[in-house]
Design a protein around this nucleic acid. Structure first.
Lengths: 186, 186
DNA sequence: GCCAAAATGAAACGATCGTTCTATTTTCTC
DNA sequence: GAGAAAATAGAACGATCGTTTCATTTTGGC
């Protein structure tokens, strides 16, 4: 992977998330990337491919961010997902989920939508793995992962109305009640 | 309020929600509204004003849909919000929250963003009122409303990954556990 | 230091989009 | 039914945007 290509993908991720898919043109991306327009078109066939690369870049950094360095098990290992999300939001700002926004702006089937679907499935699998590692059985993990996922998605969406800290804190507390009501090895 | 104006606002709401703010131009709106282009510009100063009217139209129908015809109190009165959301999604499709998408596509301050903020505050107030009517005290209602709000927002967002029925059912079940864990008159 | 490959800056294209304008037709009111 | 107001169809405008091209400069490997 070329250095310039990475630059463009990272810059596109930043500016697309900050200003929205509608208002951002190719010229803004090359400005943010400190790169000539021709360079972008030597690395990408078109704008949509830049967007796909931006989503791939975001998926990568997101998974890095959500990864646990070391984990003692139990409920706290699951609840720490919300803390990671809070850190993630601190860097990236609170403008919702980039993948959902991309899917909304590209309603017809295509690589953008596929990237969004793949991201959500990876996310769900990550939650489920965390639950299993924390002590829940497979069937319980599958069910609980759906609810934790709803709470995490709700936290991100609610940032707009409630602010980052409140939205994530309330989601986390609800998750704690949920997990206490459905303890492992039940 | 003129008949044509209402037509345009309703059509804009439909097509904007279905296809996204980015891909929809004024010509698509007038096609969907069965109205001439000049008529649109005789009723609205510009496209952004059409969008604001579309959001206002959606707010109106949304509040109608969420309103209870008659309500026995208790937990079920609150949980019925999720059923209403399911009905709402059945008509409107599962492309996320139109207000959040509008806010994401119009990042700078302005009437679009204001409409989105106002909608979320109205929504929160509706939830809180429902909780009070169901028996919770004022302080508890305020706190619980935040969490129910997160769950409702999460349900809408999770539709993309989980499908309408699953997303809303899991959110509703989580809400039930939350409300059982924090009963009224605690 | 040389040479190929990559990057740059800038201009220019076709297409699309928001907006305006005009001439004609329909609708509504008295 | 006459006259005013609104709606229509369609053309045309300037601006923006995605994309292509080109001549020039910079970079990196032998």
């Amino acid at each position: 992977m070329s250095k310039k290509r990475q630059q463009i993908a990272a810059a596109a991720e930043r500016v697309l998330y900050r200003e929205g898919f509608a208002q951002v043109g190719v010229d803004r991306i090359v400005d943010e990337a400190d790169v000539a327009l021709g360079t972008l078109y030597k690395h990408f066939p078109g704008k949509e491919d830049v967007i796909v690369a931006a989503l791939a870049h975001r998926e990568e950094t997101f998974l890095e961010r959500m990864e646990e360095p070391e984990g003692e098990g139990g409920i706290d290992a699951v609840l720490r997902l919300f803390d990671r999300l809070l850190d993630w939001g601190d860097e990236k700002g609170g403008n919702g989920c980039l993948f959902l926004r991309a899917a909304a702006d590209y309603p017809e089937p295509g690589p953008v939508r596929e990237a969004a679907v793949a991201h959500k499935q990876t996310y769900l699998a990550l939650i489920e793995r965390r639950l299993r590692h924390a002590g829940w059985e497979k069937a319980e993990s599958k069910r609980l992962a759906l609810r934790i996922f709803v709470l995490l998605e709700g936290a991100v969406s609610a940032v707009f109305a409630l602010g980052r800290e409140t939205a994530i804190a309330e989601a986390k507390e609800t998750a704690r009640l949920l997990l206490l009501a459905c303890p492992p090895r039940g």
